[in-house]
């Protein structure tokens, strides 16, 4: 509790002295929700380069990845972002799960070890964000405790949050279910892969930044 109060005070003071326009934007969510895909989409749109690699194997991002000086322009207004792509947060890591993707035992064990450290880092970095985009796979059950825990922690830290329902290009996508699960949040549906609805995402992102 003391930590939350301290962080809140730090946010107030850092907000006063912060360089105008620089927004630390975190990407959070479960593994394979599409955090890196969306970060890559943004980087491609505004820098012409990727931020990180993506894979169907869970926990492809196992270290915090940062891209600075990403300037996004909308309706004549420019905002400079520092994009912070975080490893997917999970409650379980079993190296045997990686072996199902054809990895050898040693490789799977290494990946599991890195993934656990990645989750610890993701949680620690929650304190350093100005605003956060929470990615949710719109084809999956949204009521996972990880989503609820992430959102609860952001609210407790008074960090503005935008919920992004990703993978709307897939047949199984159910954005109504995501909106039903998180009625207190703004939810925007996109496909980070195809770029579908990305303009609406930028629109909501600029609204989010106003709350910082």
């Amino acid at each position: 509790m003391i930590k939350i109060v301290r962080n809140f005070a730090r946010r107030i003071f850092s907000g006063v002295f912060k360089k105008k326009g620089e927004v630390k934007l975190g990407f959070y969510g479960s593994p394979n929700a599409g955090k890196t895909s969306l970060a890559n989409r943004i980087c491609q749109d505004w820098l012409g380069e990727d931020l990180g690699s993506v894979s169907k194997v869970p926990h492809e991002t196992r270290e915090i990845q940062i891209k600075e000086k990403v300037v996004i322009e909308r309706n004549g207004r420019k905002i400079e972002f520092k994009l912070i792509d975080t490893p997917g947060i999970a409650t379980r890591i079993d190296f045997e799960d990686f072996m199902k993707f054809g990895m050898k035992k040693a490789e799977a064990q290494d990946r599991a070890k890195e993934a656990t450290q990645g989750i610890i880092d993701s949680i620690k970095w929650l304190d350093d964000m100005d605003a956060v985009v929470v990615l949710i796979d719109s084809t999956a059950n949204p009521y996972s405790q990880v989503n609820i825990t992430i959102l609860g922690n952001l609210v407790a830290r008074n960090i503005p949050v935008l919920v992004v329902a990703n993978k709307i290009d897939l047949k199984k996508s159910d954005i109504k279910k995501i909106r039903g699960a998180f009625p207190d949040y703004e939810v925007v549906g996109i496909s980070a892969k195809s770029g579908e609805n990305i303009e609406e995402f930028y629109e909501e992102l600029f609204k989010l930044v106003k709350k910082v």
């Binding site: 656990t116 610890i120 949680i123």
Partner: peptide
């Protein structure tokens, strides 16, 4: 509380690899 849940996940992650057979939690 949500910060306690996050801490529980964090602590679970620290135990994986150090406690034989432990692969985290479901919550």
């Amino acid at each position: 509380r949500s910060d306690e849940e996050a801490k529980l996940i964090e602590n679970s992650m620290m135990l994986i690899g150090n406690v034989p057979g432990f692969a985290g939690i479901e919550i």
